[in-house]
């Protein structure tokens, strides 16, 4: 990691801890399902419909989106975990892209 962000190492550790816990710790959804949600690479409907909305257009999520998931047999705890994973995953991709851009810009300045 570039030394430019050393003042934020403490927060970097806290950030990594969020991701490690939700992807590798105990859960009701499998680690494979949580990883796929994090990456927004779930292809099964209706789960992918909701997860894609969480990632890219969360304002458009409806009651029906969640009701369809419950009707599909997923437990509320599984849905809770997968929604968190996709929200953290999308936010993480944006965060990492920005850090990479900052590191490159600072190195060339």
């Amino acid at each position: 990691m570039n030394k430019l962000i050393l003042p934020n190492y403490k927060r970097r550790a806290s950030y990594k801890a969020i991701i490690t816990r939700i992807l590798e710790g105990e859960g009701n959804a499998s680690t494979r399902e949580r990883q796929a949600a994090f990456e927004n690479t779930v292809f099964d409907k209706p789960l992918n419909t909701l997860l894609n909305k969480v990632a890219l257009q969360s304002k458009k999520i409806t009651d029906e989106d969640v009701e369809k998931l419950i009707a599909s047999g997923l437990s509320e705890d599984q849905i809770f975990e997968l929604i968190i994973c996709v929200a953290v995953g999308q936010s993480s991709r944006q965060y990492e892209a920005a850090i990479n851009a900052l590191t490159e810009a600072a190195a060339n300045k």
Partner: peptide, 17 residues
């Protein structure tokens, strides 16, 4: 950017839940 990460997560959860 740390604020961004925190609120990009929280905004999504607020709308999803």
């Amino acid at each position: 950017l740390n604020v961004c990460f925190a609120f990009n997560v929280t905004n999504r959860l607020a709308d999803a839940f």
